[in-house]
Amino acid sequence: MGSSETFENELTQLLPRLRRFAFSLSRNGADADDLAQATIERALRSRGQWEPGSRLDSWLYRIMRNLWIDTARARGRKEKHEAPEEEAQFVGEDPRESMDASLELKRAMAAMNRLPDEQREIVALILVEGFGYREVSEMLDLPIGTVSSRLVRGRTALLEMLGGSADG
């Protein structure tokens, strides 16, 4: 059980960071925690595919990103037919998060939400999570030039939405 306990301990330690990534991808806190939960479930089921010694964080981020992209795609299809898109203003309407979601977090989530998916994931991984261009290009199987150009577009749009001065 030794290695399995290590896996779970390491995963537990990474939970705060995984949640942060989930929040930067998702429309609201409830979706973010569902994504985090689905990621843990998938990770526990597929733990045999993780190579001990390689970076567990990159492996988990990749799982989360793939689950999120599947969800986002399916939702895009569904909502075209069935329901109006929920906007990021829904952030904070969940009573569980109104306590702790700061205004800044709501603003940041709303702005991230308006980015196209392919820019949002790269902005989140590089500007928020602190991965390097090369790491992200490997994680997402994208050429580094694609990572770089999407990052430029995403952060430029964000600057317009959020402003660049300290008082916003």
Binding site: A101, A108, V123
Partner: peptide, 8 residues
């Protein structure tokens, strides 16, 4: 952005 998501 880092500060906002750092709260999470």
């Amino acid at each position: 952005l880092r500060g906002a998501f750092g709260a999470v």
